[in-house]
């Protein structure tokens, strides 16, 4: 068997970074529970459109520009939001994207871009664990290390990193990523989220929190 050929990864897609930040950088397992991962990825894909100025969030409602996006997944989501007026609120769209299995769509995009490869790990008496891991597991930790480093100095995070940090905070993953830092980084992140995050992105983080909290406190049947 030949070693898989990896293409050079294109950096900076928010959903991809979110997916990677959720991975355990020792084992490659996804540490976010499926609901949190899916909601975070849905918000991240919407965030990509916000960051490229193809979308704004006004009073909780999504508004999209009528300009095509190069990325296939972003364009797909843009068209969904553009054409379908039956749902307008960001939190509802996050849930719709979760329902349409956004996690799989993001994984496929990452596979196609060569950012991850699919492997499976045998487990005793259980179904094999299917993993999507980056060629080097240190890639998974990269965004977290960058965010933690900047917050520790403290130095302002870039807009994509700040939104990513906001989504990681919403899903509870921030504790793991900032675990080796001084306790003050949490206040610093709070401050930056409050002061530096643009209104659209801030609302996106709020709505993600709301979706996750509602899911967390509702018993499943």
């Amino acid at each position: 068997m030949t070693a898989p050929h990896y293409r050079k990864a294109i950096p900076g897609l928010l959903a991809d970074e979110f997916f990677l930040a959720g991975l355990d950088d020792m084992t490659g397992e996804q540490r976010l529970e499926p609901q949190a991962l899916a909601a975070g990825l849905a918000a991240a894909v919407l965030g990509e459109l916000v960051l490229t100025r193809h979308m704004v969030v006004e009073a909780g409602a999504l508004r999209v520009a009528d300009v095509a996006v190069a990325d296939g997944l972003q364009e797909k989501v843009r068209l969904w939001v553009r054409k379908d007026r039956s749902v307008v609120l960001a939190r509802d769209w996050i849930m719709v994207l979760v329902g349409r299995d956004i996690a799989t769509l993001v994984r496929h995009r990452m596979l196609a871009a060569g950012k991850v490869v699919r492997t499976s790990r045998k487990r005793l008496l259980r179904k094999p664990l299917e993993l999507y891991v980056p060629p080097s597991l240190s890639t998974a930790a990269a965004a977290g290390v960058r965010i933690a480093g900047n917050l520790s100095v403290p130095r302002p995070l870039s807009t994509p990193d700040l939104l990513l940090a906001g989504l990681l905070r919403a899903t509870g993953r921030d504790r793991e990523i900032l675990s080796h830092c001084e306790p003050g980084v949490h206040e610093e992140l709070d401050r930056q989220l409050r002061e530096n995050l643009c209104p659209s992105a801030a609302q996106l983080v709020d709505h993600t929190t709301e979706v996750l909290v509602t899911a967390a406190v509702t018993p499943l049947f």
């Binding site: 969904w80 379908d84 039956s86 749902v87 509802d92 769209w93 849930m95 719709v96 979760v98 329902g99 349409r100 509702t218 049947f221």
Partner: peptide, 15 residues
């Protein structure tokens, strides 16, 4: 996608 977003949302609702 044949279903609308509202239908997708309704499908996730608790009965």
């Amino acid at each position: 996608m044949s279903t609308t977003a509202a239908q997708t949302l309704a499908g996730q609702r608790v009965s």
